[in-house]
Amino acid sequence: MNALCPMYNREREIKVAVEGERTLQGGGARVDDLHRIRELLERYLSPMIARSMLQKALRERNLSQERFRSGDAYKIASLLRRGVTLFVSEGDRATALQEFDALCQDIRPSVAPCYVNITSENDISVVRNEARRLCESAGAESYAIQKVTTIVSELARNIVGYAGRGKMELVPVTDPDRRIIVRASDEGKGIPNLELVLSGQYRSKTGLGRGLLGTKRLADRFDVKTGSTGTLVVAEIIL
């Protein structure tokens, strides 16, 4: 049977790995999280649907049992919520989602904030990569990651282009909703025509002006404080 049906074979391997791993050292706690997700799914769904959902999520996140790290279970969980909404029968749905969210809360990794000094153009890609990494460990989906990295890129470029140097902070927050706060600060001369820039009427020679308006459009919350001693831009993106 296994030889004829590779899919089935793979599913078995995952099952064996999930159960076998618990006794191993090190990986135990992490795979335990996966096991808990699986148990929860199987309580509300047929084993086959539960298994295929789990597999699909593993694939989508590019994860495998062998390289399972802490935080990975959470990445999968964020993909599985939709499946729970779709496949659990209407009567059980509310309870299932409640339990699922409680479990997610429990296995959520704590992601440390990140600080990058911006002093040259090269730091733009440095901070962009940091942003991507941070979003991924927070379990963000690709569109949210894209928003964050684009915003970070624009704000970092504004610092380099206008103030020369500055600081960027990326702070993951989970309460009340899961989001990332991006703070870009510099001690430059400030933005003299902020209202004009944010109105969309402004076209800078360098094209940099559009970045701030773009950031405002992409962000879920956005704030600028600017004066002759510096600028602080805060953008929040809900994950």
């Binding site: 569109y143 894209q146 684009t150 969309g200 559009r210």
Partner: peptide
């Protein structure tokens, strides 16, 4: 696709 989405939102 994600890049296209962000570009649209950004007004590019």
């Amino acid at each position: 696709p994600e890049v296209a989405f962000a570009m649209v939102q950004l007004g590019l």
